[in-house]
Design a protein around this nucleic acid. Structure first.
Lengths: 219, 219
DNA sequence: GTCTATAATCTGATAGAC
DNA sequence: GTCTATCAGATTATAGAC
């Protein structure tokens, strides 16, 4: 019996080591794309960064797109975690309008805090790459999370989330492309949030009159 | 005297031919990036397309980025022309709200009608590329044109244009990335236009109540 | 202004020894 | 699982003949 148990544990250990190596490679990939641009990732540089020959990376990932896929998935897992913080921070105790405004600020902060990640998650920019269905499921979960946030505020308009993501990713991409590191569009997030609320849930605005919401940029 | 005149005319002709070749190369470059993605442009393919060796292209452009720069400039010249049509189409006779709504629709149509152009003009996606100051000046002229459109409608809010471009490029990029060729976000353009008007110029909305505006997609 | 030739380097990916 | 060796090709760009 102990033989079987040991065998399993060895396999476990191997799987753990393998997962750790994969994670290390993905982490190195993020560092590289932040330096050289999303499309500038090369297997050789990646190997160098993790102290391997480039060819050895193929023991962990089938192809370069497989690495992009892991990054894509991780990015949306980060979004899920980042936005979940809101539910704790802005809690159920506060009024819906404030909660939604905090959501807007945090989503903007998430996007601008890592422009390359934003590019991978929200823009179709790498010619051949398409996420696997497993990774795409995480993306859908993140969208679902946003829908749930609206639903909790009593917003049933099915277009509300589409309109909100468009406005917020628009502010983000303008900020990243035309004023990187600046505040030109970040300044407008609160105003855009009010504008959105007035459009999709005017009744929520009636009570709270212009409570300027500030949120810390890093979690 | 005829000698001098002839000399000038020969130089003229040379300059004309050169400009024509440059234009032909840029046109071929657009075709290629639409097929292979913006970053997928290569001098070899480009040479093949125009019936030259790749090396000969360097007689017309100093570098690959120099070609991107010409495309960038041309893209904004196209925007200037495209948006200028509005002034004729929706004319000075119509009311300001309708004019602005038409502007919104046409800007959206301009962006979605060529996703690769949108990527080059509005997203920072090519690692090394930065537009020359001459080309950037055209980009500023296009922004100035939009400001002028707002001013003509009596909108003096300096943030109005920033908010509007963010909302409209947001709708565009979501449409391109998540529902290419579809209508999911295009449907929302009119609603977003009303939302924007209510935010930056509510007085313009008071008179005209929901005049659904439709605009042809190709000019 | 177009060509040949070529530099000098990078690319993703595979085969097979250990 | 990591290595060496290598494929088979791409890349931008320059030099110099014509």
């Amino acid at each position: 019996m102990s033989g079987k148990t040991n065998a399993v544990s060895v396999l476990d250990r191997r799987a753990t080591r393998r997962a750790a190596s994969r994670a290390e490679i993905v982490e190195a990939a993020w560092l590289l794309v932040r330096e050289q641009g999303l499309a500038g990732l090369s297997m050789r540089d990646l190997g160098d960064r993790v102290g391997m020959r480039a060819q050895s990376v193929y023991s962990y990932f089938d192809s370069k797109d497989d690495i992009y896929d892991a990054m894509f998935r991780q990015g949306y897992e980060e979004q899920l975690a980042w936005m979940a913080d809101d539910e704790g921070a802005a809690g159920g105790s506060e009024d819906p309008a404030t909660r939604l405004r905090v959501m807007a600020h945090r989503f903007f902060a998430f996007c601008t805090s890592d422009p390359v990640r934003y590019q991978l998650l929200f823009q179709r920019t790498i010619p051949g790459f398409e996420p696997s269905s497993a990774s795409y499921a995480v993306a859908l979960a993140a969208l679902e999370q946003m829908h749930a946030g609206f639903a909790r505020a009593g917003i049933t308009d099915p277009d509300a989330a589409d309109l909100a993501t468009a406005v917020l990713t628009g502010l983000t991409s303008q900020q990243i492309a035309n004023d990187p590191g600046g505040m030109r569009w970040e300044r407008l997030v609160d105003r855009a949030g009010t504008m959105l609320l007035r459009e999709v849930a005017p009744h929520l605005l009636a009570k709270t009159r212009k409570p300027t919401t500030r949120v810390r940029r890093t979690p």
